[in-house]
């Protein structure tokens, strides 16, 4: 991006993703290097905001325990019913006991995505470190759960018994590869979507400094913001439903 800077206006679409110390004045100190694991950074702050938003919706919103729900309570109930039905439909009856875990993932990703859309905020889910952790938790959890529940029978899902015998070893290799690619695509999809959306918005926002195209740029930012709202919800949904699909392999036994 340096050569863009030379032409007079600079767009730094990636600067919004920089992790920095939160209680730190950038004019006097270095806020970005040598960040220890325990320090309060903008990641910490926005994750705390995510937690608070979830608590506000799910705990504070439902405090009335009303038979006729208030608006916030009915939003919480809708999300509950939506995810519960998804878990039940996709993983079957045995998967329902992992519902709190799936709900945690969904709510965290949804609220992190939505809070990230507040101008000037920090999108925690656009970071590969975060999404890879989330995806690895699902991947390792599903694999260990499958092995614990089905023993070595879990490995039977790589042996496609409906295919001709000669093809089976080849298919097994492909299945194994696709199995291990799962956490990669699972995490990169989420981070990539959010990173791309926010970067594109930033690029168009940068174009707004050019008088000739600024009306177009402002309109484009508005339109992309709407699209990003959709993406934020859809990606949370997709991450969750893929979690359910993977979970089905573990609880539903070997598929064929």
């Amino acid at each position: 991006m340096t050569d863009v800077a030379e032409t007079g206006f600079a767009i730094h679409p990636m600067d919004q993703f920089i992790v920095k110390r939160f209680f730190c004045d950038a004019a006097h100190a270095d806020c970005t290097t040598n960040i220890e694991w325990y320090e309060i950074t903008n990641v910490t702050v926005w994750m705390a905001a995510t937690v608070l938003a979830i608590v506000a919706l799910m705990v504070f919103g439902s405090r009335g325990r009303a038979i006729i729900p208030s608006r916030i309570q009915s939003v919480g109930e809708m999300i509950y019913g939506f995810i519960y039905k998804m878990v039940e439909d996709v993983t079957g009856h045995d998967g329902v006991k992992y519902f709190p875990y799936v709900m945690t993932l969904f709510l965290f990703i949804l609220f992190a995505n939505l809070l990230g859309l507040i101008p000037g905020s920090f999108t925690t889910t656009s970071h590969v470190a975060v999404t890879v952790t989330l995806a690895l938790m699902v991947f390792l959890g599903v694999t260990l759960l499958g092995l614990a529940k089905n023993g070595l029978g879990f490995l039977g899902m790589f042996w496609v018994s409906s295919a001709p015998l000669a093809l089976r070893p080849v298919l097994a290799v492909i299945e194994v590869i696709s199995y291990f690619v799962r956490p990669v695509s699972h995490s990169i999809r989420l981070a990539g979507n959010l990173m791309a959306g926010h970067a594109v918005m930033k690029v168009f926002a940068g174009f707004a400094s050019m008088a000739v195209i600024s009306p177009v740029a402002v309109g484009a930012v508005t339109a992309i913001y709407g699209l990003e709202l959709l993406v934020a919800v859809v990606q949370a949904y997709v991450f969750t439903i893929l979690t359910c699909v993977y979970l089905k392999d573990a609880v539903g036994g070997a598929h064929h």
Partner: peptide
């Protein structure tokens, strides 16, 4: 649900190139 899963898979490959 299948629609979204399919879209997610198709999109993931594009995201890789991105």
């Amino acid at each position: 649900a299948n629609l979204f899963v399919g879209i997610a898979f198709a999109e993931a490959l594009g995201i890789f190139s991105f």
